[in-house]
């Protein structure tokens, strides 16, 4: 039925236009390849997300521990969400950020452990500490933990000549994990942790900045 061919006004196939040939499916530009690429990309991302959720799960374990030990478990929740989200995002993003997540998590355990220990020994809570004379001990424990964590992050990042996102990511996660313990002390504890962390990171960061 040549007259129905839309390519030619004269009712015959246009001899200039070559006949349409389906591309070889082995060609990466073929429709099959395009559809597969889309599905494969989705599979790649989903697989990375699954791995990231699994890799970030220790944060949840630490949060559960902090909530069990802490006198005010509800204060732990926002920091748990923040830390878990940050860790998941970092592991999902790239391998170098996965390392940053590991460093941040490990560094954050120091202030977390110190604050929880201080909290247990002196029963520090949102309304102060039970033992007189020790009310100011918890915030310094957080600051000291932050300092150690900051030094850890700094040394690790400096040794591996890490990029700025590594420093920021690892420090943020260290702060988030540390805050799981310091949250029960209140804003002073969390702020003390942040100050300690900044002071700890600063020397290595200064060396990096000087070299750059």
């Amino acid at each position: 039925m040549a007259s129905t061919d839309p390519r030619s006004p004269f009712g015959a196939p246009n001899p200039i236009e070559p006949p349409r040939v389906d591309p070889d499916p082995a060609d990466p530009r073929s429709p099959v390849a395009h559809a597969t690429e889309r599905r494969a990309r989705r599979a790649y991302e989903l697989s990375r997300i699954r791995r990231a959720l699994l890799a970030a799960s220790p944060v949840l374990a630490l949060a559960a521990l902090a909530a069990l030990v802490s006198p005010s478990p509800t204060r732990v929740v926002p920091f748990a969400i923040l830390s878990f989200g940050a860790a998941t995002l970092m592991v999902w993003q790239s391998r170098s950020m996965s390392r940053a997540a590991l460093v941040g998590m490990l560094a954050g355990v120091v202030p977390l452990a110190l604050s929880l220990a201080a909290n247990q020994w002196h029963a520090c809570g949102p309304h102060g500490c039970a033992s007189h004379g020790f009310s100011s001990f918890c915030a310094p424990a957080c600051a000291l933990g932050g300092l150690v964590a900051g030094l850890g992050v700094g040394v690790s990042a400096h040794r591996t000549r890490a990029s700025a996102p590594f420093w920021i990511g690892a420090s943020t996660l260290a702060w988030g994990v540390g805050a799981l313990g310091c949250a029960c002390v209140g804003a002073v504890g969390v702020a003390g942790l942040a100050v300690g962390l900044l002071v700890g990171v600063m020397p290595a960061w200064s060396v990096r900045a000087a070299r750059a």
Binding site: V32, A35, T36, E37, R39, A40, R41, A43, Y44, L46, S47, R48, R51
Partner: peptide
């Protein structure tokens, strides 16, 4: 089969 293979490959790429 190639689609399945590419999906598996990309799942295991990490």
């Amino acid at each position: 089969a190639a689609q399945q293979a590419m999906m598996k490959l990309m799942e295991r790429a990490a």
